[in-house]
Design a protein around this nucleic acid. Structure first.
Lengths: 239, 239
DNA sequence: TGTACATCAGTGAACGCGCGTTCACTGATGTAC
DNA sequence: TGTACATCAGTGAACGCGCGTTCACTGATGTAC
């Protein structure tokens, strides 16, 4: 009976080194190597979801493979796929926060505010398409952990928006509940816009990207929808 | 060498007969038996998705098992899981249509119309919770076939609503694009409400159902959101 | 600066499992005479 | 009405595959002296 564990040559091992794999020639520090592999796993997960497939359809092995790493190396960074998913939620939420921050800087005149907000939204979705697509899917996915994480972040986001809205003179006398209602309406409309953008840029027949015409149409529609809500504000009698 | 294929007793086969399984005592016709198994497969799929898990996480074997049928029997009814999914989309769409039809019967005075519409929506979601949950998940799922099927049905639904809206005197002079925009806003708000109801009735801590308080809160919020949109209508200048 | 040892990120073989799909089959229902 | 044959919904064994997870390992990086 021969030795069960085969002794491979070192060259065969080198041949497997790809992406975040083991590249001794580079002389990276251990912590840097670790950081890069973690990043590669997160990016691989986002990349694998790119075709419009959700987090649920990922497998640990596919993510590891796409990251250029052996499946077992995954466990050096995350205990489960859920933990990787939560890390992606954190990154995505950071993107949302930066969006809200950017929207806060600038004038408060309604007409410009709407156009600017939609512009910022579209720019962010384009810039961080994978993160938004991840959230759009995971929001309604089968994974309860991710779904709840994203839902609660969405509620938090709406609450922060309500606080911002409270600063407008015309909304000063609205009840908290009505401000939340209004913020919810804005957020729901934004989410619908995000969905529409993502659908148009994924589902497009082979074009892979969002055509300028389609984008313009979606921007116009979103602006109109926000504007019609704003139009109603002076006529609302808050309880 | 013994015969590879074991010859089981007929009693052991009977013991396996469950649900839509083979029940010779009943003397059903072949077509009736076929119809019942198909129904059992569809119901089993809906049931398996009940815990908040989406269509993507179903497997053919699990569905067949839950339907009380052997995996291979599945193929007598559907070529693939996708086909079963499309059958569920058809059923769900029929539900939506009946909802719209019900909403059309009755007065057109705005205030009552909103309350009635929300009431009908909530009643339908409660009555057909599994179908709505299926659509809410599949809308954003990884399965491109189902996603597109549901998206296009949603657009059709919004178009029909736009046609209904065109009959209101106050909307008579609105452009088609603006009517579509308005219908889209209503539909997006309804979808958000449906999502909120489903989330509250699944995510509730062990209660399994939607508490009357939560439902009342969601109904109030939805009514307010629709009302604020309606409030804006007289002030909109359509292009 | 040089040496001996510790750490630990990534490796590769192995496992048991549920999956979709194939195939030849069984036996009740349906039909032709 | 009775018999012989056809139909076909559902069966059960088998297959190859990708999965998550375990384990002992390798070898470069890091550290104590």
């Amino acid at each position: 009976m021969v030795n069960r564990r085969t002794h491979h040559t070192s060259t065969s091992r080198r041949a497997h080194a790809r992406g975040a794999g083991h590249l001794p020639a580079e002389r990276r520090s251990q912590v840097e190597r670790r950081r890069q592999t973690r990043r590669a796993l997160l990016d691989a997960a986002l990349q694998q979801m790119d075709g419009g497939y959700g987090f649920d359809s990922l497998s640990l092995r596919r993510v590891a493979r796409a990251a250029g790493v052996v499946p077992t190396a995954f466990y050096r960074h995350f205990d489960t796929m859920d933990e990787l998913g939560l890390a992606l939620v954190e990154e995505s939420v950071a993107t949302l926060r930066s969006m809200l921050r950017e929207a806060r800087e600038g004038g408060t005149e309604a007409q410009h505010l709407i156009a600017r907000s939609v512009e910022i939204l579209v720019a962010h979705v384009r810039e961080h398409r994978r993160h938004f697509a991840f959230m759009a899917h995971a929001r309604a996915s089968g994974n309860a952990v991710l779904r709840h994480a994203i839902r609660s972040e969405t509620k938090l986001f709406a609450s922060e928006l309500a606080t911002d809205l409270a600063r407008f003179p015309i909304l000063r006398d609205w009840s908290t509940a009505d401000l939340q209602m209004l913020a919810g309406l804005f957020v729901d409309t934004m989410i619908a816009t995000i969905d529409a953008i993502l659908e148009a840029s994924n589902g497009g027949a082979g074009t892979e990207g969002l055509s300028p015409e389609t984008e313009a149409r979606l921007v116009t529609q979103a602006e109109k929808q926000l504007r019609i809500i704003v139009l109603a504000i002076p006529h609302w009698r808050s309880t």
